[in-house]
Design a protein around this nucleic acid. Structure first.
Lengths: 188, 188, 188, 188
DNA sequence: GATGAATGAGCTTTCATTCAT
DNA sequence: TATGAATGAAAGCTCATTCAT
């Protein structure tokens, strides 16, 4: 039953976040998942493959959460709010995912091509939103990737600071932050 | 002679950048530094300590580069431009440093307290700048850490995208980016 | 149905020849035989037993081929020719079999007693031939095993050299080789 | 001190002979040699390299023993006797070496080219002897490799039978065996 | 101080064998 | 009977660390 596959993936994610990429030993993953070491290899060819699968699964999940409820017919600003709030909720809910992603992308496993493909697959609606705003002449003439980086991925840094305890990201700040990010990309 | 200490630190730095956090073995460091394996342990208690020292060195260097030429007497906007340009140059010059930092901060070595201390020590002028702007009522009423995150650390993401080849960060974009970041934090 | 037993034995044989003694995994055998892993254990107690059975099958087959067409009523020299030609044809036809046997006999599986028994069972006519020649006073007074070793098993070495490409064993050499081997054992 | 290298090689050889090629684990080798597992890897890159080194060392040793005291000025028959006696003594003295060699040559490690090179290096005088006999018109017109196989390597089989307890190779048989082998290759 | 050979715990991975279905 | 997912001992190998020189 694929229940085991899930448990292995989940155990791997947790351990990477907790012990770092190096600290994630297959033995530990097996223990946390409640299976024998050999069992992991029934589901994943090797450690690298397991790591890649964790990555892809998480990317998909994040993509889904960030674009949830996005209505292409709504006003540009409303769509922006939806994306922004989805993003911050997603990031605050699963801080492990941050630690994991950052390590994955810094590791030798990571390849530009694969990354591009995953983004295209799971974050397409996000980029389409920014492209649309550009076409309407609403946003600064900067690549959609840049606009996205300055307003949404940006939140990765803030939530990391929050997790580290250096800032306190409470709801009271959201409106000001949304406004700040919106003003950053608005054409003047 | 502390010449050896320097060579060890430098070798470690190079190896982390080249082979990743995991690829940096003490044996390799010794070889690159031209010393015996055991010699490293005269200068650093263990691998963890060596890694921490490399980290601190890097933080100091980056702090220096980012605040270089910052004139507290200049106009707020001019100071902002200086910080912004210093930051982007620093990040584009040493993309390895990004990969390194990200791995370090995600690793179990990293502690909030130590991190706070390093920031206080090496990035004080940066935070003082934002504090000053806040006092003058020029910036949005958000924590200095947040303002800094949205405008300078923000560039970490953009340069990472640049390195990955997903955007092209040429000088032609700088003015628009500075303007975007400046507008983000300006009180309205 | 014992059809499965046959398929398992055959798969094992093929795999040993192709991948070597070490490369033969039970899983692979099962796959090649088109049965489940566990099924093998219905027919053979364990890997060792399977290996022993493959060995015995091979010995029997070789025994059959070597003694094929041997006529106890024919002249001693004619019988010798028959054995010699059968042997070289058998060895050249299945060079894998050599590699297999050599590995088997060198392995801890191999026991003197078992080996003796197999020889008695499958190569009896060969030894009887040499015994008969001895009784007739035709051959040197050496143990039949020695006579056989010097003239027939001997060919194992030559065919191995042939397989390794160090000599070229073409039919043109056969008469001279038969003559050489015959002269070796002839009493003078 | 290279004392350890010797101990490791020797332990490996013994274990291969005793437990078979597969039974020789690096852990066991380390134990028998009285060193730590990691120590083996200071002297040999990996298991394969260790195995190759054992092979080469033994080939050299056997080459030396077989050609010991060979006098190119002596009569052809005397030289033959020297080679023959050297060979049988060498083979009977170190039966491990047989088990080892046979397994090595049957393994995937073995390459024709490497084998050829080792033979050229360590058994040159043996082949030169047979070549000389051929030039003098003394021997049958068969490749030197074949003549050597029929008379000397041939003894490998006999000593194996001896070790297995199927024949008893005592000195009383030597003269008859030498004569048999000599007659086999002599031109008539 | 400096060396680097030696250590051995710990890593990833394989595979003969079992057993619930 | 037959299955094949699951097991876990054991394999080859690495590397942070020590210590006799």
């Amino acid at each position: 039953m694929s229940d085991k596959r899930e448990r292995i993936l989940s155990a791997a994610e947790t351990l990477i976040a907790r012990c770092g990429f190096q600290g994630m030993s297959m033995h530990l993953v097996a223990q946390h998942a409640g299976v024998a070491t050999g069992t992991i290899y029934r589901y994943f060819a090797d450690k690298e493959t397991l790591l890649r699968c964790v990555h892809e699964e998480r990317m998909q999940e994040i993509g889904n959460r960030v674009t949830r409820g996005l209505d292409p017919g709504a006003s540009c600003y409303d769509q922006f709010r939806t994306l922004w709030l989805n993003t911050i909720h997603c990031l605050l809910d699963s801080p492990d995912c941050l630690l994991y992603r950052v390590q994955y992308e810094a590791s030798p496993l990571f390849s530009k091509e694969e990354d591009q493909e995953l983004h295209d697959r799971y974050f397409k609606p996000v980029f389409e939103f920014f492209e649309q705003g550009l076409e309407e002449g609403l946003f600064r003439e900067l690549p959609a990737e840049v606009l996205c980086g300055m307003t949404l991925e940006n939140l990765l840094l803030l939530t990391q600071k929050h997790t580290k305890g250096r800032i306190d990201l409470h709801e009271g700040l959201y409106e000001s932050l949304i406004d700040a990010n919106w003003n950053a990309i608005l054409k003047r």
